[in-house]
Write a protein that binds this DNA or RNA. Structure first.
Ligand SMILES: [Mn+2]
Ligand SMILES: [Mn+2]
Ligand SMILES: [Zn+2]
Ligand SMILES: [Zn+2]
Lengths: 161, 161
DNA sequence: CCGACAATGCAACAAAGTTGCATCACAAAG
DNA sequence: CTTTGTGATGCAACTTTGTTGCATTGTCGG
């Protein structure tokens, strides 16, 4: 996609008040421009194309990114949490489309359809913190390829740590 | 709550084409009238007030209920899936309000705020199967009690199996 | 060089769910 | 009444995903 639209990983970390380290830059780089929310395992595989990386450290970095507001954590139908970068400008939430076949979780354009869900939360006798909207289904790629799941996962074998 | 509003567990199973067994009746009974989506662990604890029950069998029963359309499985912010009975009449989806503090997941009234989310799914190059809407926040009970979480869990010790 | 302090790595652990296989219950057949 | 088949249940081991405690490394101010 159009790389010019994206801030550099270094700037993103700076904006969130997180000290830049090689691993953190690699993690943010892996998530940037994906256009979808990735499970920790996929992010780890992507980062390991560039450098060795420890599983636990990755989880700690992801926790930090979420805590500092740079990333969001989303639950899908399966057991793994997905992480996607907050769209640059603000904390406006966005929904996701989850393929129950291949596990891909596409980020949807901001604001789409979420307005009245947020309104719904307002009447709830609850301090609303966030709103999760997920559309489950079978993605176009998986609908075609009847056989194996379409974009099943990031390649690259396991191993290190 | 008003028990007269609820179908009997036996009837629910019959309607879904599931053979009734004592355990299955107990499971459906535990879920019925809860008004919220319960994690498997809570359902197990409730069932065990009545009879011994095996963890694996419970998971198999829950899978069966979901497969036959009698129950729905929902993911929350934590690692445990929640299960709630489909409201009697139809497959109309409903959203949930999840308390990040005590883990309670309240079922919201049907239709509330989900109309345009469903519409959003229609434009998606994806075979839409279902729509998940979850409002995360801190429930009223937890907001008051600053100390320990409010409705933390179903009581009853672990043990059996 | 020295100590402080954050980042990383490693091993063990934990929670939730799954798998394979043994057993049980019960009904139909002989 | 006994045999035999089938689905439901139980049990142990395992997998996946994430977490915790603690050791090690690296960096920066003095
Ligand atoms: Mn996203
Ligand atoms: Mn519900
Ligand atoms: Zn797919
Ligand atoms: Zn609560």
């Amino acid at each position: 996609m159009d790389a010019a639209l994206h801030e550099s990983p270094a700037r993103m970390l700076a904006r969130a008040g997180i000290e830049a380290t090689p691993l953190r830059l690699a993690v943010v780089g892996a998530m940037a421009g994906a256009g979808r929310a990735l499970p920790a395992g996929d992010i780890l595989a992507l980062v390991r194309r560039l450098r060795p990386a420890n599983r636990v450290t990755l989880y700690r970095i992801l926790d930090l990114l979420v805590e500092k507001g740079l990333a969001r954590r989303h639950s899908a139908g399966d057991r793994a949490q997905r992480y996607c970068l907050e769209p640059g400008t603000a904390g406006a939430p966005h929904g996701h489309a989850y393929c129950v076949r291949c596990g891909a979780m596409q980020c949807l354009p901001q604001g789409a359809g979420l307005a009245d869900v947020a309104a719904l939360g307002a009447g709830l006798a609850m301090d609303v913190l966030s709103v999760e909207v997920r559309i489950d289904g079978v993605c176009a790629a998986c609908r075609e390829s009847k056989g194996r799941p379409a974009g099943a996962a990031v390649d690259g074998d396991p191993g290190n740590s």
